[in-house]
């Protein structure tokens, strides 16, 4: 792939759920080797945008090019090829509950490569090592904690050494040490392998640590799309509000802030568990 073509290119994307428009005229591009963070308030359409980038939803109008290919006109076989070059870590992990952690991570290799079992075993353990889960390959997802599930999902997402990695809320629900190690991991993956990485997150600290560029979504529209510093120093009042509102609110009403933080944390910590009790 030539480094001139953007890893992701979205042009005038408009999408609806039923009659309700969720994304309005979203255009953005992600350069190769870039860490691109999508931010925005709850309900602003981040997950919806991510699902479109993954080809799980079909846009009403607009074009999405992934690694130079328009995913809505691609043949099934080409799309399959494309998908082996991208990795996704879902927010809930979405590990296959009927398979051990090791089998989960090995699955893309078993399905898409001709590697023998020994090599697959080595690669699997290597990736588990990368996310500090060495020795957990024989456990079932139900036996892992929320944060471990998230890291296992991360290992599965990178097992094929993708060109493009998507992470939905990678650090939500993790303790600060692990969360920061995930940030380091994201930086390391980009530096070592030149991956382009798209991260959806609420975490401002993490965003400022890892992002090359930030896209701020607001009510389905791109409010701003710029480098970290430019966003920080943006004269745009709405962006400043968005960046500062949290801290302001915290100062005005620490109780509400605390409650919100706790509620938020609980929600995220529970999400994988909820998924699994859905069994």
């Amino acid at each position: 792939m030539s480094s001139a073509t953007p890893s992701i290119e979205v042009i005038n994307l408009n999408t609806h759920y039923g009659d309700r428009q969720v994304l309005r005229n979203v255009s953005l591009s992600v350069n190769p080797g870039e860490i691109f963070v999508i931010m925005g308030g709850s309900g602003s359409g981040k997950t919806t945008l991510l699902n479109h980038l993954l080809g799980l939803l079909r846009p009403t109008t607009g074009t999405i090019r992934i690694l130079g290919k328009d995913i809505n006109t691609l043949s099934a076989l080409e799309l399959q090829d494309l998908r082996t070059r991208m990795g996704v870590a879902f927010q809930s992990g979405a590990l296959f509950s009927s398979m051990s952690v090791g089998d989960n991570i090995a699955l893309p290799l078993r399905e898409h490569s001709d590697l023998d079992e020994t090599t697959i075993g080595i690669v699997t353990r290597l990736k588990l090592e990368v996310v500090s889960l060495a020795g957990f390959e024989d456990l079932m997802p139900a036996e892992l904690s929320g944060g471990m599930i998230k890291r296992a999902a991360f290992a599965r997402a990178i097992v094929m050494d993708p060109k493009l990695l998507f992470c939905d809320e990678p650090s939500a629900g993790l303790d600060p040490v692990v969360a920061s190690s995930i940030d380091d991991l994201i930086l390391r993956l980009r530096d070592a392998m030149g991956m382009s990485i798209v991260v959806v997150t609420h975490d401002l600290d993490s965003t400022f640590k890892i992002a090359d560029r930030i896209c701020v979504l607001d009510k389905g529209e791109v409010l701003a799309l710029d480098s970290v510093d430019a966003i920080r120093n943006s004269p745009n009042e709405r962006i400043q509000n968005l960046l500062n509102r949290r801290t302001e609110e915290a100062e005005v009403d620490p109780d509400a802030y605390l409650r919100r933080l706790l509620g938020e944390k609980e929600k995220h910590a529970n999400q994988p568990t909820q998924g699994r009790t859905g069994l």
């Binding site: 494309l82 998908r83 979405a94 399905e111």
Partner: peptide
């Protein structure tokens, strides 16, 4: 039951994005 659980756990999306039909 297995498919239903996989669906609500996003495991089916997960398969799709891995390029596994």
């Amino acid at each position: 039951a297995r498919l239903g659980t996989m669906r609500i756990n996003q495991e089916i999306d997960s398969l799709t994005v891995m390029g596994i039909n």
